[in-house]
Measured scan of single mutants.
Amino acid sequence: MQGVVKVNSALNMRSGPGSNYGVIGTLRNNDKVEIIKEVDGWYEIRFNGKVGSASKSYITIVN
Rank of each mutant, 00 (worst) to 15 (best):
W42V: 01
N30D: 11
D40C: 10
A54R: 01
S9E: 13
K50F: 10
N48W: 06
T60Q: 14
G41Y: 05
V33Q: 00
E44H: 07
S53W: 15
S57C: 14
N30R: 07
Y43L: 06
K56Y: 01
I36P: 01
I61G: 03
V51F: 09
D31W: 04
Y43S: 01
V39E: 10
D31V: 06
K6C: 14
A54P: 01
Y43A: 00
Y43D: 00
S15Q: 08
N48S: 07
T26A: 08
V4H: 06
V23Q: 05
I36E: 02
S57V: 12
T26G: 03
V39I: 13
I24V: 12
K37A: 13
I59Y: 00
V51T: 12
S19G: 11
Q2V: 14
D31C: 06
G3V: 05
E34S: 07
G18H: 03
R28F: 12
D31R: 01
P17Y: 01
S15I: 06
I24D: 02
V62H: 08
A54Q: 02
I59T: 00
I45L: 08
L11Y: 02
R46K: 12
G16W: 03
S19H: 15
P17F: 05
G41I: 04
D40R: 08
K56R: 07
I45E: 00
I61E: 05
G41H: 06
S55L: 15
V5S: 02
G49F: 04
S55G: 10
V62S: 09
S9R: 13
V51Y: 10
D40A: 08
E44Q: 10
Y43I: 03
Y58T: 08
N20H: 14
V51D: 06
N20T: 08
I61D: 04
N12Y: 12
S53C: 15
G18V: 00
G25T: 09
V5E: 02
N12T: 10
S57H: 14
I24N: 04
G18C: 07
D31K: 01
K50S: 09
S15G: 08
K56I: 09
K56W: 02
I35S: 00
I36R: 03
F47M: 06
S53G: 09
K32N: 09
M1H: 10
I45A: 01
T26K: 12
I45H: 00
Y58M: 11
G52A: 07
R14L: 12
N29C: 11
K32M: 14
L11A: 12
S57M: 14
S55R: 15
V39T: 11
D40N: 13
G52P: 01
Q2A: 11
P17L: 04
G25D: 13
G41E: 10
K56E: 06
S19N: 14
V23I: 13
G25H: 07
K50R: 11
I35N: 00
S19F: 15
V7P: 02
N12K: 13
Y21K: 04
F47D: 01
V51R: 09
N63V: 13
R14P: 03
N48E: 13
A10F: 15
V62Q: 09
I61S: 04
G3T: 02
I35H: 00
G18M: 00
N48P: 03
I45N: 00
Y21G: 07
P17E: 03
G25F: 04
K50G: 06
K50E: 09
Q2D: 08
R14S: 05
E38D: 07
Q2K: 11
N29S: 08
V23H: 05
Y21A: 04
S55E: 15
G18E: 04
W42Y: 10
P17Q: 04
S15Y: 06
S15T: 09
Y43H: 01
T26C: 13
P17S: 05
R28L: 12
N8V: 12
N8K: 15
Y21F: 13
Y58E: 11
R46M: 12
M13N: 02
T60L: 11
G18A: 03
L11S: 05
V62E: 11
N48K: 12
L11M: 10
V5F: 00
I24G: 02
R14Q: 06
K32S: 09
G3S: 02
Y21R: 04
K32L: 15
E44P: 00
M1P: 08
L27E: 01
S15H: 05
G25A: 13
N8I: 11
V33T: 00
N8S: 12
Y58N: 12
N29R: 08
S9N: 13
G49N: 09
N30V: 02
G41W: 05
D40E: 11
N63Q: 13
V23C: 08
I45S: 00
W42D: 02
I36D: 02
P17D: 03
K56A: 12
G22T: 13
M13A: 05
V5Y: 00
D40I: 03
E44K: 06
N8H: 12
V33N: 00
Q2M: 15
V62C: 13
T26W: 07
N8R: 12
Q2Y: 15
N12M: 11
V4I: 14
K32D: 04
I36Y: 07
I61C: 08
S9I: 12
V33H: 00
G25R: 02
S57L: 14
G49Y: 03
I35K: 00
N12R: 12
S55P: 15
G49S: 06
G41S: 07
N20F: 10
K6S: 10
G22R: 12
K32A: 10
I61H: 05
I24Q: 02
E34H: 10
E38V: 08
E34Y: 11
N29W: 07
I59W: 00
V4S: 05
T26M: 11
N29G: 07
E44R: 05
G49W: 02
I59C: 04
T26H: 10
I61W: 02
M13E: 04
Y58H: 14
S15M: 08
V4L: 11
M1G: 07
V62G: 07
S53K: 05
K37E: 07
W42C: 04
Y43P: 00
Q2I: 15
D31F: 04
V51H: 08
N48D: 12
G3K: 02
E38S: 07
E38Q: 07
R14D: 03
A54E: 02
S55I: 14
Y58C: 14
S53H: 15
I36N: 02
S15R: 06
K50M: 14
N30E: 10
T26V: 14
N30T: 05
G22Q: 14
G18I: 00
F47T: 04
R14G: 04
L11F: 03
V51A: 08
I61M: 09
N30Y: 08
R46Y: 11
W42E: 01
G16S: 03
V33A: 01
G49A: 05
I45F: 06
K32H: 12
R28S: 11
K6Q: 12
L27Q: 01
L11Q: 10
D40P: 05
S57I: 14
I24L: 07
G52Y: 04
K6P: 01
V7Y: 06
I36V: 09
G16C: 07
D31I: 05
K6L: 08
K32Q: 12
N63L: 11
V51G: 05
K32I: 15
G16M: 03
S55V: 12
D31N: 05
I45D: 00
P17I: 04
S15D: 10
L27T: 01
N20D: 13
L11D: 03
V62P: 07
G16I: 02
I61L: 11
S53V: 12
G3D: 03
K50P: 02
Y43V: 04
N63E: 13
E38L: 08
G49R: 04
G25C: 13
V33Y: 03
R14E: 03
V39Y: 12
G52V: 04
I36T: 07
V51M: 09
N20P: 01
I24C: 07
W42K: 00
S15L: 09
L27M: 06
G16V: 02
Y21H: 09
N29F: 08
R28T: 09
V39S: 09
R28C: 14
K32P: 08
S15N: 09
S19W: 15
T26L: 13
G3A: 07
K56T: 10
V7C: 15
S57K: 15
I36G: 02
N12Q: 14
S57N: 14
G16D: 00
R46I: 14
M13L: 13
N8C: 15
I36K: 02
K50Q: 13
G18N: 06
G49H: 05
V5K: 02
S53R: 05
K37N: 12
K37Y: 08
V5N: 01
A10Y: 15
G41P: 02
D40K: 09
R46C: 12
V5C: 06
K37L: 09
V7W: 03
A10H: 15
I35C: 04
G52N: 01
N12S: 11
A10M: 13
S53M: 15
E44V: 15
F47A: 08
N63M: 12
I24M: 05
V51S: 09
F47R: 02
K32Y: 12
A54I: 15
V4W: 03
I61Y: 03
D40L: 08
R46P: 00
M13Y: 04
